[in-house]
Amino acid sequence: MSTVDIFDIKRFAVHDGPGIRTTVFMKGCPLRCWWCHNPESQSMNSVTVDVERKLNGKSIKGLKTYGESVDLDGVMETVLRDRLFYEESGGGVTFSGGEPLMQYAALESLLKISKRNGLHTALDTSGFGRKDHFESILKYTDLFLYDLKNIDRDLHREYTGVDNKLILSNADYLLKKGARVIFRIPVIPGINTMDDELQRLLSFVDERKAMLEEVHLLPYHRIAESKYARLKMKKQMGDVKEPDASFMEGLRERFETTGLKVSIGG
C-alpha cells in the first residue's frame, strides 16, 4: 500500500479554496521562506517535540509528533467523511504543505482518487516543481492556489532559498493550459511590500489577467511564532509587525485595478 507523509489533516478548512474543505498538509518543502507559517512542514522527517500540557495550573509533559506516514486509503477515508459538507458548500479537498509536489507520486494518486470520488480538488503550491509533474496532475486538479512571493529573482532567492524562474514559468504553463489558477500573494512587510516589488507583482498579475479570476492577498501573521519556539527553529522574521488593515485595503484597491476579484485572506 502506498503511503504519504503528512503532518496534519485540517477539516472545515475555509481559507483553502471554495466552500468547506478538508486540507491535507503534506510533509516536505524545497523552499525555506522566512515567514513560513508551517515550519513543521519543511523537513521530510517527522519531528517530535515536547509540549506542555496545563492541568490545574500544573504543567504535565507530553509529546507531539509532526509528521507520520499514512496509507493513502487512510487519508481518503478521513477526507470522504465530510463529502456532504463539500457538496452542500461547493467545497472539496485541498492538498497543501509543505510543497505537495515533493511527494509527487502520492499526490498524483490522491488527486486521482479524489476525482474518482467526485470531489473538487485544489492544490496549494509554491509552484516549485517539475513541469511534467504539473502536466500530469492537470487533469485531476480543479484549482491551483498558486503562491507568488517575489518577482525579483534576488529577493526570491534571499527570502525563500530558491530561484523563482521555474515557479514563474510553471505558472505560465498552467495558465496556457487553461488551468484554473488563483494567485496567492503573501504580503510580507519588508520582503515584498517595497513599492517597486509590489509594482512587479502587480504587473505580473495584470499581464495574465485574461486567464485569471481571482487574487488572494494573505497578510503576514505572527500566528506561527510559538511553533518556531516549540520546534527550536530560528525565527527569521524577528519582530516584524503584521501589515495593518488600511495597508491591506490599499493593496486590495491597487490589485483591483486589474479588474480581478481580490480578497484579503483565503
Binding site: 494573505l218 505572527r222 500566528i223 511564532e225 510559538s226 511553533k227 484579503i264 485572506g265
Partner: peptide, 16 residues
C-alpha cells in the same frame, strides 16, 4: 481565525 490562517487558541503563544 486570522485572515487566511487559523489555529487552535491553545497552540498560540501568550502574546498572540
Amino acid at each position: 481565525r486570522v485572515a487566511g490562517y487559523s489555529d487552535y487558541f491553545n497552540d498560540l503563544g501568550p502574546e498572540l
